[in-house]
Nucleic acid binder design. Structure first.
Lengths: 252, 252
DNA sequence: CGGGAAGTTGAAGCCAGTCAAGATTTGTGG
DNA sequence: CCACAAATCTTGACTGGCTTCAACTTCCCG
């Protein structure tokens, strides 16, 4: 697989990375910044709908999403799909390929994306020479594990309205932390099928559940925008503890 | 929390660890062995039913399970429980406390357990001085993330019989890899409620589903022993790919 | 031998799945 | 810029897999 758009290397210097300024991310030390700058091998732009990584395949490259949104998902034998997580700016993509040797899920761009590109082979050098960064990588995997555990609890134990509320609450929190919100509204470019495949409900029932959340004024997702006027009320239905959320994560 | 049984330190030297001999685990280099021996601070025996780690709490200690079986689970606000994974010999316990600062799930001993004890504060030294081991730690977190993704896909998309078949198939594989099997039978000291809480089904329906698996001669779990005479047949129902399983994992 | 925990079984009800059709939006080529 | 096609969203009706309730059995362990 080749990416023609990848030629213009070093478009953004890490020092100028707009994500760094967000309070959602930990600060970089000057050394870390320098290291990241040389760890970065290029930048990549892809269009909406593009498959970035594929389940079962390795990838010579790892990515950090600079802008755009996407999906991680697993495809089952019979064609069913489980959306494992949503991907937002600042997310590190491809760790499984970097650590385990192959991806255990696919990654698809829902909107157009700009990505920072790294060389997978350098992962080992990170562990050898940059223990701080290696720890951050592990931290990210651990947080993802935590998230999946929470997802499992939600899907496994809760009702339809609780599950959908959970997904919307989580999404709204993350996008707000990234300052992508406009007041209580955040852009949400996914389709209902994506949410349905994430929470393990049928498309039809997801639609009806979204309508119910709208009617109860808990969350309104219309025209690609999600509005949550009272996030505590939504969080309560969702079974989410807003006071126990991770406030800062490392940026790779 | 104090563990009276912990006094007799260094009961087992890592060099004599029976788990090391299993082909399910990667081999230790002599340096690694030496490092592990000094990383280990003691040994712990606990009885069945003991809670080892608690959700939301930190832990000054990390563990490797030497013998016995247990459960990782999350408790929801209303008392419902999601079993996140089963714990078998060789599993490393407490990583989340080590990396994230607190546990995101509880850990309970289903049978009596013997555990290897490590000092959580030393985790950072592992990253600094033993990049190889640090990589192994990350690998373990990544595998756990992979497992939870698969669990999510199973719970989210499959029917009752497929979910239970999935759980039993996974358990049977792991216990067989640990050579705990006696022919096609493995010990399985859990209660039906544990499996029910793991696959997101009611206790009653789990019971009926187990009966159906027995009747179809796919898996028979009676008297604390699980017998799977044709693991390929079970794996097919479960949607598990036996050819794509992880064959070796690092032992910490 | 008595009491509690775990397993088993049947019956009834409901939450969510499936089917189907129509409305709305998006995309595309003339 | 319009017309048609395809994708997405919406709604109603019906169905069924799983939950809940309840009673009984079996297995332990003191």
């Amino acid at each position: 697989m080749t990416y023609p758009e990848q030629n213009n290397r070093f478009q953004t210097r890490c020092g100028d990375c707009p994500l760094r300024k967000l309070s959602a991310f930990e600060e970089f030390s000057p050394q870390t910044l320098k290291f990241m700058q040389q760890f970065k091998v290029g930048e990549l732009k892809i269009e909406a709908g593009t498959q970035l990584l594929m389940e079962g395949h390795s990838s010579p490259q790892l990515f950090t999403l600079l802008s755009g949104m996407g999906l991680r998902y697993k495809t089952l034998e019979d064609g069913d799909r489980q959306v494992v997580n949503f991907i937002f700016p600042g997310d590190f993509i491809g760790m499984q390929a970097g650590i385990l040797g192959e991806m255990k899920h696919s990654v698809e761009a829902t909107t157009a994306m700009t990505l920072c590109v790294f060389d997978r082979k350098e992962i080992w050098q990170v562990f050898r020479n940059e223990p701080q960064r290696a720890f951050s990588l592990t931290w990210l995997v651990a947080i993802e594990e935590h998230f999946l555990g929470e997802a499992l609890a939600s899907i496994g134990q809760r009702s339809a309205i609780q599950r959908v509320a959970w997904a919307l609450s989580r999404i709204h929190s993350r996008l707000t932390a990234l300052k992508l919100n406009n007041g209580s509204a955040v852009p949400l470019p996914y389709r209902q099928r994506d949410i349905a495949d994430a929470v393990g409900l049928s498309l039809v029932h997801t639609n009806k559940t979204l309508a119910e959340l709208r009617k109860k004024q808990l969350a309104s997702w219309v025209d690609g925008h999600l509005v949550v006027s009272d996030k505590r009320k939504l969080a309560k239905v969702a079974g989410v503890d807003l006071d126990n959320e991770v406030s800062q994560r490392p940026l790779i």
